[in-house]
Design a binder for these strands. Structure first.
Lengths: 221, 221
DNA sequence: CGGGTCATTTTTGAATGCAAAATGTCGTCC
DNA sequence: GGACGACATTTTGCATTCAAAAATGACCCG
């Protein structure tokens, strides 16, 4: 019998579990951006002492999810429209790389995972499920590059961008456009057309970024 | 009177100082890759207790410089030829992005910094100095993108690659080639030719990577 | 009634202490 | 001579403790 596939949050050392759990809390939008994070409260919540919690905070700060202010506590990293632009720009460079590499390196298993993720995306459930499936789809392409360094950076960016969905709601118009773009991406992928795949992924990312930026600016105005 | 510009290692909280200092130690090649890092020894060396040291270790692990093995201590991240290939590949994507953006966004001040860094590189001193100046030059181009997200990722990759110089010595032949490539890069930069600059940076990175990989394979064989 | 100062409380940063896991040592047996 | 196993030692992971810095609030003065 195979091992029961423990989720990342229930294995490893205590502080590693806390990193996963706390990151999940932040990505679930439970703590609004900019709010203070009292250590004692989190210790109570997770049932641990401050030592592993503080280790986790340092790691999450390095990942860009929280901000440490010496002697003044940690805060959930504020969402800055300028930084969001930079995040999408950086993600665009990775998407291009993903396109060029995945088209060439995808194994049959990779291709099947990508097809499945794309198919799952075809039947739109609630918005929250759509977001998760969309992430899975794009991540499956990143996995197909077989470059762990790239994948780790991509995961980080994807998660940091993911936090935005609580300040800018998914725009239904944009979701519809995405379907078409995803189809185009799959066409290029099935043809293993590396430059086309790169271009379509980059453009898809750029359009999403622009939509997010418009909403961000609209709401702040 | 301006503040005396403290180096990163002497400011901020204790654990932040340790992160910088310890990273510097690793980049100086004082600890060979794969060697164990006894916590007590480092505490003694830095004159601190284990708490901030362990926080620093977690951060450096997240950055990819060390590896944490639960209950079995930390080791200096082993240099794996396959991973080195992945690092250069990822760096290549960023170099392209740097080329496309820096050509367009560089301010006159950026341009001057880049020119100065390039000029400093022209008079080759000892190999160690050359490596540092070379890093400065490429970093100056990254700064000119005015994208901090990119810059942070680039810094990380640059430093991780930097560790290699202790396992593969700078190859004089390759250094000579670099001079020519740097000239080409500057020509493209001065003309603000974004696609050319991107291509030359990418190619320069690829050639360096290939040279390193050849040496790595040669030495392991 | 508002602003400012000082004492009190809370919270953070780092050191210490303690239990569990891993490592090393020695003796035994084959 | 080498493999195995019990014991002692070391090292790690986490909880607890202590000191210093920031936040809070009471009090006074204008």
């Amino acid at each position: 019998m195979a091992a029961p596939a423990l989720s990342e949050a229930e294995t490893g050392t205590l502080h590693e579990q806390i990193v996963s759990k706390l990151r999940a809390v932040l990505l679930n939008g439970e703590l609004a951006d900019g709010t203070r994070i009292p250590e004692a409260q989190l210790c109570l919540r997770f049932g641990i002492s401050r030592t592993p919690l503080r280790e986790a905070l340092k790691v999450l700060a390095a990942e860009g999810f929280i901000e440490l202010r010496p002697n003044r506590g940690s805060i959930v990293a504020p969402i800055d429209p300028v930084e969001v632009g930079h995040l999408f720009e950086m993600k665009g460079a990775l998407e291009q790389m993903i396109g060029r590499l995945a088209a060439v390196r995808a194994t049959p298993e990779d291709a099947e995972r990508i097809e499945r993720a794309h198919a799952a995306l075809g039947r739109p459930a609630d918005p929250a499920a759509y977001t998760a499936l969309n992430q899975d789809f794009h991540r499956a392409l990143a996995v197909a590059t077989h470059n762990p360094v790239l994948l780790q950076s991509y995961d980080n960016l994807q998660k940091r961008v993911l936090r935005l969905r609580f300040v800018v709601n998914e725009n239904p118009q944009r979701v519809l456009e995405s379907f078409g773009e995803h189809e185009g991406i799959m066409v290029a992928f099935r043809a293993r057309a590396r430059l086309d795949l790169a271009e379509r992924l980059e453009e898809h990312n750029r359009l999403t970024g622009e939509a997010v930026m418009r909403t961000l600016k609209g709401e702040s105005a």
